[in-house]
Amino acid sequence: MVRSEELGIGYEHDEGVAWVVEDLDLEVEHGVVTCLIGESGCGKSTIGNAISGLLPPYARTYGRLVVADRVVIDGDKMNFTGVRGKVVVRIAQDPASALNPYLTIGEQLSTAIRTHFPGLSEHDVRSKALELLSDVMLGEDVYDRYPHQLSGGMKRRAAIALALAPEPEVIVADEPTSALDAYLKYAVASLLKKLQREWELTLVFITHDVSIARYICDQVVVVYAGRIVEEGASPRCLESPSHPYLELLLKALPKRFSKDRLADIPGMPPRPGMYPTGCKFHPRCPYVFERCRQEEPPIIKAGDRLVRCWRYYEQSLT
């Protein structure tokens, strides 16, 4: 389970702190796949790194973050002792970065198992390593191979096996399918989903790929300028969007049998430290009205989901 309460995350630089994420209230229940969707620079990795305890030393925080019943961020203090790399692990985008090119997959798995389960016999370490390989659907022969002897898809599986070695409760997968061939994307996503079910994990799946999100997630969280702009308990909102940003994003996606012109979303997402006043999407929003420029809308319940938009706020009053 992951819960944040008015969480703020920023990065310190010469002139102060650029706040990337502000007042984030995120709730991911135990045993659920939540997708964080949004375009690059909107703060997905920043949120993922905060959950997995991997923010850089010059990151600043406020608010609270609770991961698997432990308060890991409290105001400007972070405490991930016994949590980072154990209770919560991150699978990064680049699998090569997680694997050591000079050690076989078996050696790397064994080292990780010994670290997290000291006292296991060598025989047990080896059988646990082989079990992990079979969990990620890799053959026993992979045990003795070096990373460069594996295909891109196999490397990602091996990196997933390594991440699972400590038997975590929460996994943050940051763009685990980007730059993979279409069928490998689905193979990696369905593997994560299978493991999540079997191990009853909480999976935070970060992606900008809407079709993969539709395929894997239970809960959808759409992020724009470090805020949740739409949240739903099912992939339904990816079929029938409420927030103008999500609506345009889906209209900008090429559809297989349609040659209708793709929606142009004018401009670009704002950079941290330069977020506009009012609704953070208002400079690009086709429905903008006066109130949007002045005040930031609160996130409110609209039908089966939560939306941060004044249009829905006004509708909810009538």
Binding site: D181, A182, L249, L253, D264, I265
Partner: peptide, 29 residues
């Protein structure tokens, strides 16, 4: 990103019309 991809694809379509171009476009998508 999705929104910039849409901008580029729209531009490519317009350019082709305007300039009478012929394209060979490679993609895994």
């Amino acid at each position: 990103d999705i929104s910039t991809q849409a901008q580029i694809l729209n531009i490519l379509r317009d350019l082709k019309e305007e300039l009478g171009l012929t394209y060979v476009l490679v993609s895994h998508d």
